[in-house]
């Protein structure tokens, strides 16, 4: 069995009296595509934020590639995010005044040095070689999401986190994005943790966990496409 890229033990996140994530033990092997499903407020986005180092647990431990995120400082977490993780958002969150190419290069800036050739290559990999100079407002939802994917993979992260990455896309674009993610994972062998409401999207992963009221309630293997 592959080594674990993510290991949590009794991982908890509370906001005052509200426990958004109840003690969770989770292990994700290297290269696995894990889908997290659940209703709104089930704790899936909380889990994703913790895995991405965007939030801190209130209890338990969380280790990504052997790094205990709970012990990292603010700047340590920033380093972790730029070195180890790529995040794909539902709302794309592209910088409106930068072109597709520049949005990808922005991620490089925080990681190392902006490299136009590399950024162009990343956009070509997601099929946007012809949209380099377009700003987000000039791109369709699917294209914006592909820019977001190119930005997430540009620094070769070992873990890709997706927060409802197809939530705003139509069926055709959803399929295109999922195929793209599958191909990229096959080439780069990174792990994926993806939150979704969509059963069809979940079917693209290797394993799905279902969450409800902050607890992991069910786990199932999916065939993966």
């Amino acid at each position: 069995m592959a080594a674990a890229i993510i290991e949590t033990s009794q991982l908890t996140r509370s906001y005052g009296d509200i426990c958004a994530l109840k003690p969770l033990d989770l292990c994700v092997p290297e290269g696995e595509w894990l889908t997290v499903m659940g209703h709104s407020g089930s704790g899936k986005s909380t889990l994703l934020n913790l895995l991405g180092g965007l939030d801190r647990p209130t209890g338990g431990s969380i280790s990504v590639r052997g790094t205990d995120l709970a012990t990292l400082s603010e700047d340590g977490l920033a380093r972790f995010r730029r070195d180890c993780v790529g995040i794909i958002f539902q709302q794309h969150h592209l910088i409106p005044y930068l072109t597709a190419l520049e949005n990808v290069m922005m991620s490089q800036y925080f990681h190392s040095v902006p490299d136009e050739a590399e950024a162009r290559h990343a956009l070509e990999r997601v099929g946007l070689g012809h949209r380099l100079k377009n700003r987000p407002g000039e791109l369709s939802g699917g294209e914006q999401q592909r820019v977001c994917i190119a930005r997430a993979i540009i620094n070769s992260p070992r873990l890709l986190l997706g927060d409802e990455p197809t939530g705003n896309l139509d069926h055709k674009s959803t399929t295109m994005v999922m195929e793209l993610l599958r191909d990229l994972r096959d080439e780069d062998r990174f792990s994926i943790v993806m939150v979704t409401h969509n059963q069809e999207v979940a079917a693209w992963g290797d394993r799905t966990i279902h969450m409800d009221d902050g607890c992991l309630v069910r786990e199932e293997r999916t065939k993966g496409c």
Binding site: G52, L54, E74, D75, A78, R79, F80, R81, R82, D83, V85, I87, H93, I95, M106, S107, F110, H111, R151
Partner: peptide, 16 residues
């Protein structure tokens, strides 16, 4: 705010 949040999520440190 969103842009700053995004920059932080992309790994931008406070110093950056």
């Amino acid at each position: 705010g969103k842009e700053i949040g995004l920059l932080k999520a992309m790994g931008g440190s406070r110093w950056d």
